[in-house]
Structures are given as structure tokens and as C-alpha cells.
């Protein structure tokens, strides 16, 4: 039995669901950022698999851009985490209730 496109897509779907669970259920801001990275990686896997099985390099170009965007997102996200930690002395998302009435 050869490995087809759907095998890669199912692995990608499972990884995406794991990342989504982390982004919803965990409250540590760093873990939420890690989960978003996991979701981006799952999307990358799907794009590379599509590119391979369609026979065109466009998907890989898209992944190239996505990896760059992920690096940018991590840099800005971690800067925000450091800034939040300086101001609130906590990085739990439920402690950030300054705008609550």
C-alpha cells in the first residue's frame, strides 16, 4: 500500500487539531504561541503534500512564505510576552483583565 496524499493530509489534520486544543485549553501565553506554531506547521505539511501530488512548485513557494511569516509572528509574540511579563508579572492569559469592567 503506497502512501497517498490523504495520508499526509490526515497527519496534518491531527497536528492542527492538537494545536487548536492547546490554543483553546491552555492559559500560559508561551504555550499558546507554541500551539500556534504547531498549527502553522500542520498547514505547511498540507501545502507541501499538495505541491508534490499536483506536480507544481507553487505550494512550496507558499510554504517558504509561511515559514517567514511564522518567524515574524514568533518575534512579535515573544516581544509582547516579555512586555506583558514586565507590566503584570504574570504570563497567564486569565490574569490579563485590565479592560474588564
Amino acid at each position: 500500500m503506497t502512501v497517498g496524499l490523504e495520508h499526509y493530509l490526515i497527519v496534518s489534520a491531527i497536528l492542527f487539531a492538537a494545536g487548536l486544543f492547546g490554543a483553546i485549553a491552555r492559559r500560559n501565553l508561551l504555550i499558546i504561541l507554541l500551539s500556534v506554531e504547531l498549527m502553522l506547521n500542520a498547514a505547511n505539511l498540507a501545502l507541501v503534500a499538495f505541491s508534490r501530488f499536483k506536480g507544481s512548485p507553487d505550494g512550496q513557494v507558499m510554504v517558504f512564505f509561511t515559514i517567514t511569516i511564522a518567524a515574524v509572528e514568533v518575534a512579535i509574540g515573544l516581544a509582547l510576552v516579555v512586555s506583558i511579563y514586565r507590566r503584570f508579572k504574570a504570563i497567564s492569559s486569565e490574569d490579563l483583565t485590565t479592560m474588564k469592567l
Binding site: 497527519v11 491531527i14 497536528l15 492538537a18 494545536g19 486544543f21 492547546g22 485549553a25 491552555r26 504555550i31 507554541l34 500551539s35 504547531l38
Partner: peptide, 9 residues
């Protein structure tokens, strides 16, 4: 998949 699940839970 195993490492990905261990990241979040």
C-alpha cells in the same frame, strides 16, 4: 503526532 500532542497536553 505524538510529539505534537505532548506539546499541548
Amino acid at each position: 503526532v505524538v510529539c505534537g500532542i505532548l506539546v499541548v497536553a
